[in-house]
Design a protein around this nucleic acid. Structure first.
Lengths: 270, 270
DNA sequence: TGCGAGATAATGTATAGGCATATAATTGGC
DNA sequence: GCCAATTATATGCCTATACATTATCTCGCA
């Protein structure tokens, strides 16, 4: 099996870039060399030409194919290894990984953004707000063992006149003291917190339940009707920030996750 | 050669290079320099010291701080930009991104693996199997407009004696002709397909519904009881491979997604 | 035959420099 | 004073090289 069936993408002459594409005549011409190399290798893997376990060309071979330096191919291969698509072993070579479990990137937008996407007017209301010490159960939800002061919130989000989502939230007041005095008139607690503690680490748990009587009344659905529940515990710098349970009436909502081997693993800057 | 000695002396100095305003150095020290730089910058962002919109040191500044070359810090910053944590603008600098929507990594394991994780014996059965041409609706599910031959499967997965999951699947026989003659006695269609077309791209849609009469009977739950539904359309090299709808009885199942700013974005080898 | 000492092959990391490109800031011409 | 041209800055991308690390293979020698 000849290995250079895809080697026709050799650079013509180094340092000479093709015409600065006036109107993107072809699909998307990968501008940079390492993007092109990455695309080629990824193509070979995704198309199945290079199956799991198969060894892919070593760095010097790729240098030769693309007439480039080792750093360039190394950058590509390192990136693919970090993404989990290949496995690299010293002295032996690089091999296509066998995906044990697909991993998908789930985008969790702000609720306001979700409602906006439906072209419906958004509003929300605070149904309950109280300060309290963390009981044992609440501490378990937040994943902390310290007894910290908590802010407890229940909040309802609307899309038009229809209840869209019910939010139960605990905020660690020790980590975010400003939450105690914040009025959530303008910004919802979720958005407010994201402004305060923008970058954090979170665990999300997604499941389906039937609405209990309380939830059903607040969401204006029948008791027991299916709901999508997203629970999220958020930490930043080792201390828990907030726990939130979002309950969506079943058919009103859908989470979208995309599995992309590489590339768009993060939200784009709009 | 003096070049060598120069590099050597730099290397020795490097060990004590200042970690800028880093306080939590009690962690394990990352082996390589760029890992340390990445950890430092990430720490500054996650801890909130560098908030969204804030400009982070330019490459030459980081070179000086860490006494390293530009390639090294460039590697780090490029990586962070790809992960979506910072945004880089020429001439202006690099800025901490404001996460508009959190993106989490969702791990979608094989059903057998899920059941194994519960320490229950796994088995499955094929309830229906038929070949057919793609009707308009089925084509819409698969996301193709060609009229391709399809294999339609209904399959039930058990955890112990309890039905665990219902699987409705369409397989594009044009893309995977071997599926027509495969017997799914040993391996479930999902696992079989993953062996045939190991790397692919998929869209996942997750929602909650009530079980209809048919599903309820097969899952041994009451009609209308809440179910978690995962629909997935899988493509490889532009041609759709398979569509699958997995229906889990509500409280039996939970999807876990983790938001990690950088790093373990892919499943690790066992 | 067994086995330890290289030789070798591949990746991992880092350096120093280069040109290219986009854009903010500055300057020059009017 | 305003707009255009230039310059400076910071990133984007690439090269060529060097040395370190690690696992595999091979060869010489007892």
């Amino acid at each position: 099996m000849k290995k250079n069936e895809n080697a026709e993408s050799l650079r013509s002459v180094k340092g000479k870039a093709a015409a600065p594409q006036g109107k993107e005549r072809t699909r998307k011409v990968p501008a940079s060399l390492h993007q092109r190399i990455l695309g080629d290798i990824q193509g070979n893997i995704l198309s199945g030409r290079w199956g799991p376990g198969q060894r892919i060309p070593v760095e010097h071979e790729l240098m030769r194919q693309y007439r480039c330096s080792r750093m360039t191919v190394n950058k590509v291969l390192t990136q693919m290894a970090q993404a989990g698509m290949i496995e690299r072993r010293r002295k032996v070579g690089s091999f296509v990984r066998r995906p044990q479990s697909q991993s998908a990137v789930l985008s969790i937008p702000d609720i306001k953004a979700e409602v906006d996407a439906l072209n419906l007017p958004y509003r929300f209301e605070i149904l309950k707000r109280s300060k309290r010490a963390a009981s044992r159960e609440l501490r378990a939800l937040l994943g902390t063992d310290e007894s910290v002061p908590l802010l407890e919130l229940v909040c309802r989000h609307f899309a038009g006149d229809q209840p869209f989502c019910l939010e139960y939230r605990l905020v660690n007041l020790q980590a975010v003291p400003a939450a105690a005095t914040a009025d959530f008139d303008e910004t919802s607690p979720g958005a407010w917190l994201l402004r305060q503690v923008p970058w954090n680490v979170a665990d999300n748990r997604i499941r389906a339940t039937g609405a209990n009587a309380d939830e059903a009344a607040r969401l204006q659905v029948k008791s027991g009707s299916p709901c999508l529940v997203v629970e999220r515990t958020t930490r930043a710098a080792q201390s828990p920030i907030t726990f939130v349970r979002l309950t969506y009436p079943g058919n009103l909502h859908e989470l979208i996750a995309t599995f992309t081997p590489l590339g768009a693993s993060a939200p784009q800057p709009a």
